[in-house]
Nucleic acid binder design. Sequence first.
DNA 1: ATATACTTTTAGATTAGCCTAAAAAATGTA
DNA 2: TACATTTTTTAGGCTAATCTAAAAGTATAT
Lengths: 221, 221
Amino acid sequence: MSTLSLAEENYLKAIYHLSASSKKQVSTNAIAERLTTKPASVSDMIRKLSEKKVITYVKYQGVNITDEGKKYALNVIRKHRLWEVFLVDKLKFNWDEVHEIAEQLEHIHSPLLISRLDEFLDFPKFDPHGDPIPNEDGVISTRPRMVLSGLSSGTSCLLVSMKDTGVVFLNYLDKIGLKIGTKLKITEVYEFDGSMEVEADQENSMTISKQVADNLLVVSE
Amino acid sequence: MSTLSLAEENYLKAIYHLSASSKKQVSTNAIAERLTTKPASVSDMIRKLSEKKVITYVKYQGVNITDEGKKYALNVIRKHRLWEVFLVDKLKFNWDEVHEIAEQLEHIHSPLLISRLDEFLDFPKFDPHGDPIPNEDGVISTRPRMVLSGLSSGTSCLLVSMKDTGVVFLNYLDKIGLKIGTKLKITEVYEFDGSMEVEADQENSMTISKQVADNLLVVSE
DNA sequence: ATATACTTTTAGATTAGCCTAAAAAATGTA
DNA sequence: TACATTTTTTAGGCTAATCTAAAAGTATAT
Ligand SMILES: [Mn+2]
Ligand SMILES: [Mn+2]
Ligand SMILES: [Mn+2]
Ligand SMILES: [Mn+2]
C-alpha cells in the first residue's frame, strides 16, 4: 500500500472507527458527519480510497475497510496515541488538551521516529484516555471498560474515561481529586443507595454517589 | 499576520535563509533552485506572499522579506531546531538523521507545545548542528563559527560542523572519535605543518593534520 | 547599440480537496 | 404498490499548488 495524503488518512481513520463501532457497512452520511464535510465530498474520496484498495465499496451500499486499510488506520491511531502519551507524560499537558495536537502529529511520516518514541515512552500500552495503543503490526491489547458502579467491593481499577463530559461534572471530579489515570480501590458498596467508598491512588478515601459512579469508566488493574 | 500554509511556510523560510546569506534581493531562480520547484511556481507564490505582507516585491527586481515575514520565518526555524534537539537528545538520533523529520515537525501549529518542548529540553540555545535557536521573539544568540585550524594553543571549543561532508571524511572522524558536539581543547600547535594536538571531551588526546583541522568548524565554548 | 542570452512573468493546464445544486437510487409508509 | 422522504451520487465550480510553453523584460558582450 502506497502512502496516503493527510486527508486520505483522516478519512480512513474515520472509516476505521465507524466500522469498529457498528460492524456493518459505513454510510456516506456517517463519514460526512464525523469529519464535518459534505456527503458529496465523501463520495469523491471513497472512490479514491477504494482505487487504492484500502476500502471496498459498492455504489449506494456503503463502505467496508480492507485488511490493508485496517493496518494503515491502526498505524495512524498508534501514532496519535503515542504522541498523546508523550504530551501528557513528558510535556505535562492535561489529558484533555492533547487531542488536537495529536491530530497533527499523527501525520508525521517516519517509522524510525515512532519506534524511538515508543521506546522513549517505555512501550506504553494505553494512551492517557485509557485507549489501547496498537503495536507495529496493528495488534491491540484489549482491556474492556466497565462502569464503576457495576463493580463490587474489593475491586481495584484505573479511571480511564467519563460518560458525562460536561464542565459541571468535570469540575466536581477535579474538586474531589479524581482524574483520568487515578487508581481506584472500592472498599465498600452501600446497598441501599448504591453509593460507594473508594480509595484514590492508595491515599485518600472518599464516598461517591451512585450517580457519580455511573459516569466513571474504569479498566481492571 | 495570519497563518500560512505549509507550502507558504517553506517558501518564506527559503527566502529568509537566502536573504540572510546574501543581503540583497532574493531572485526567483534562487528560490526555485533551493526548493527544487520551477521559477514559474515561484512567481505565483511570491505574489501571494507579498499580498500577505511577509515579503515585498517589485516585478523583475526580486524579493525582500519584511519584519513580519522575518518573525514568522524565525518561528518556523525555532520549531525546526527545537525538534532537532529533541530527536538527538531524547530519542537518540544521530545529528545527521534528523533534518528530514524536523522538516515535517516544524509545521505543527501549537505555541503551547513549543514552549513546553523548549522547557522539556532545558531551553537549548543551539541545535545539534550548532545553529542558534531563535527565542519566542525571534531573537537569536550569535556565536560565530570558526575554522579549527585558525585557533591557537590553549583554546577550548565545540565541534559544530564540517566543511567536507563526504563519506570518506566523516568515516575518518568517526574512527578517531570526533563528532558534532565533541568538546575540543587545543593543547599544542605545530608550526612546521599546522598539525595540532587536541584533547577530545576532556578524555583522549590525538594529533590531527592541518587538512583535517581546515575542515572542522567550531564555536567558542 | 544591437544581438544574444538569461531571467522572470504570464497563459493555460492539471490534480487534490472541497463545495452547491440537481439527479438518481434506496427506503419507509399508507 | 405507489408515493414521499432520505441517502447517495453526479455535474459543475472553486482554490491552492504545481507544471510546461511562450512572451516579456533585463543583462552582457562585441
Ligand atoms: Mn485523541
Ligand atoms: Mn488527523
Ligand atoms: Mn535541519
Ligand atoms: Mn519544511
